[in-house]
Computed example of a mutant assay.
Amino acid sequence: MWFYLPAAIIYGVLFVAPTFASFYFALTRWTIFDSEFIGLDNFVTFFSEPYLFQSLIHTLLYAVITSGLKVVLGLLFAVFLSSQIIARGYLRSVVFFPVLVSAVGVGVTFRVLMDPFDGLINNVLAGVGIDGPGWLTDPDLALFSVAFVDVWAGVGIATLIYIAGIVAIPQEYFEAAKVDGASAVKSFRHVTLPLMRPATTTVIILSLIGGLRSFALIWTMTGGGPGFSSDVLASMVYKQYQAGFYGLSTAGNVVLFVLVAAIVIPLFWFLNRKEVDR
């Protein structure tokens, strides 16, 4: 137990104490110098303000889109990159490379590429006779554009986890399926997918947590705009803090914390239970 003590102290100081402090300050109107207890007023304001509540919907939508695409694309890439193809190691590096770039760097790069007038993407589309949309300036497209960039930047982690899961499957299972006359599709469905359930659980949980907590990429690419069309909880919390509404921003942080816990913990339990049942 003495070996656990240093890590427990660091965890308590850097996570547990600030977490409980946030729950308290979310019930106050505070500044750096003083605080006034106001009960649940901050939470009432949060859920009554249309743009704050809209950011909650955007957060859920963003998390579902990014995590879903990372699971599907990561699995497809992993199956392809685990087969006997030429330059397999190089292709794996290409898929994983975006993970090494900071979210701010990715955001700045794609903000330039998606510029509606001078961006490379719309210039290429114009070259084939297509009038490109305002990827980051159209309120109906901004959030989805950032979500697809998030998938591009993060699918390498999902692919890596799936590759590790595929490599860990004993080859005897595939040989037995082949002897029984199973096609490649049936072998994938009845051997690969069931045995990669732990990897799938990991990818889903990590992707969901990342999507629910996303901030840097959205703030770099759109700043939550145009208007409030791409704001998520984290960006709205930051805006409230910038405006000096510290208690309201703390309440938003608490809502985000509870949201992540309420989604991830039951989902983690459910996926692990399904794994044990199988």
Rank of each mutant, 00 (worst) to 15 (best):
I10G: 12
Y11E: 05
V13D: 12
L14C: 12
F15C: 10
V16N: 07
V16M: 13
V16L: 15
A17I: 15
F20V: 13
A26F: 09
I32F: 13
D34C: 00
S35Q: 14
E36T: 14
I38M: 11
L40Y: 12
L40M: 13
N42S: 09
L60Y: 04
L60C: 03
V64A: 14
I65C: 01
I65V: 15
S67D: 08
S67A: 15
L69G: 03
L81Y: 07
S83M: 12
Q84F: 12
I85M: 12
I86C: 09
Y90G: 13
R92S: 08
S93H: 00
S93D: 03
V95C: 11
F96T: 02
M114H: 06
I121W: 07
N122V: 05
L125Y: 06
A126I: 01
A126S: 14
G127V: 00
W135Q: 08
W135A: 10
P139F: 02
D140P: 03
V151M: 03
G154Q: 10
V155S: 00
A158T: 02
A164S: 14
G165C: 04
I166V: 10
I169R: 05
A176T: 12
K178W: 02
D180Y: 05
D180S: 05
S187N: 08
F188Y: 10
V191G: 02
T192H: 02
M196Y: 01
T201F: 04
I205A: 06
S207W: 05
L208V: 08
L208A: 06
R213L: 13
L217M: 09
T222D: 06
G224P: 08
Y238I: 02
Q242K: 12
Q242R: 13
L248N: 04
T250A: 11
L256N: 14
L256G: 09
L256V: 07
L259M: 15
L259E: 12
V260M: 10
I263E: 04
F268K: 01
L271R: 01
L271M: 10
E275S: 11
